[in-house]
Design a binder for these strands. Sequence first.
DNA 1: GTGCTTATCGTCAGAGAGACGACTATCATC
DNA 2: GATGATAGTCGTCTCTCTGACGATAAGCAC
Lengths: 262, 262
Amino acid sequence: MSRYDPSAFPPFAVTVDLVVLTVREHALCALLVRRGEPPFQGYWALPGGFVRPDEGLAEAASRELSEETGLRAHPMPGQGAAGGPVDGVHLVGAHTAGAHLEQLATYGHPQRDPRMRVVSVAHLALAPDLPTPRPGGDASSARWAPAGELIGQSPADGVPLAFDHGKILADGVERARSKIEYSSLATAFCPPEFTVGELRQVYEAVWGVALDPRNFHRKVTGTPGFLVPTGGTTTRQGGRPAQLFKPGGATVLNPPMLRPES
Amino acid sequence: MSRYDPSAFPPFAVTVDLVVLTVREHALCALLVRRGEPPFQGYWALPGGFVRPDEGLAEAASRELSEETGLRAHPMPGQGAAGGPVDGVHLVGAHTAGAHLEQLATYGHPQRDPRMRVVSVAHLALAPDLPTPRPGGDASSARWAPAGELIGQSPADGVPLAFDHGKILADGVERARSKIEYSSLATAFCPPEFTVGELRQVYEAVWGVALDPRNFHRKVTGTPGFLVPTGGTTTRQGGRPAQLFKPGGATVLNPPMLRPES
DNA sequence: GTGCTTATCGTCAGAGAGACGACTATCATC
DNA sequence: GATGATAGTCGTCTCTCTGACGATAAGCAC
């Protein structure tokens, strides 16, 4: 069985790759960076990089996210059981609301990188709309791309991503789509204070469906601990002034938001 | 940013660890093996081992499972999107029903193994009650242990597991508990043909609650594609003869089975 | 047969969701 | 200032599903 033979083990490279999602202009978008060197030179890829010898996986993901977006991380307490196997991490940028980071899955096909054996621990980050996608200072080397076009739900399938990043992105989008059903994670896409209508637009963008504003309003305001009114109002969406809310303490939604069957 | 510098990368050992769950005597049990060498010599641990240079992660998990339990694996088609990010694999043993294998999460804390930097990709396997836990041929080196006692839900907390395997086991149990809510995975704990009562006992053992037999019967027989009657009956549970069923094609349960709150 | 066990069908009340009507409050424009 | 457009918020009705639980069926041990 030779379990754990420390003298001779096959060496692997371990990386983290990030699926960073946000909602911009009513569409779910993913952060991509352009590869400057082979393999897949010139292709778009997910941001990521090597795990350093002395850092953990979540730590590496948090560091990479910070390098790519400027978001800084601090641990989000009390998420252990509810947040799934790997605890979520809450991220706070200098001028933005919190974000969410969690482990997604690990990809280790022997030939996924032609240079060597690389195992990538993919992470999923949900962020509010970042004013400037200032990734690395070089604007042409990074962009927000509509997720629907990248995962084959649009006629223009677009250029494929480097490595197996198309598959990783699709898995991340599916995770986000299912997770906002039964958790309050959709608020991670919103600014610190938001209206019910803005939250509904998040659901509509992530799921790609239209939701009834009245039923949605009843549902989210009627779920204890989901939303807390801040007292303020805003008219930034036009129309009648809307109440402003911030996320309540609840992390799980019971009963869940139901995604309409298409 | 130095993304992917193939010339110099920190070498990691990559292993797979297995959370193998089954239901025996109305209790959820996990497969443990005894460590014969340091560190944690004499401790119980999850089965697992190194990923070989030319095999994928699921492949390695499947191989380890086969070595430990005798279950053989073959791919389970058509599970891609519904089964989550990482496809499930269906396992078939010589004399038993199918089993289920899926990636759980990856654990890579820098100090989780005192000898070297080890990243472990944990997998979750759900198997029907195996007649003989013949792990490696040495009966004293492996056992089925009640999961409740191992994850701190019982007064006798028992001996802790080696490494971070207690945490991995707890995550696997939680994954199983939540996944049988909205998928048909509970049938993976059952023999090829089973009664509604046997399926109910699986839910009761995994969740640790009592369910109403009448409502459970209505729910599972009323969900299209969940169960298919085979035509036969059995009295192996005593009482009135019960219809035998096999798993239907459905993988997702909509609406889900609701775990009683408490 | 009697009693025990488990399976299976039925009934009823309450919670929650989808469909949609109605009213409110602001802004842009005439 | 009146008018219309836009968006927010409250209600109502119906249907489905669930939880609680009564009732009956069909085996086995004695």
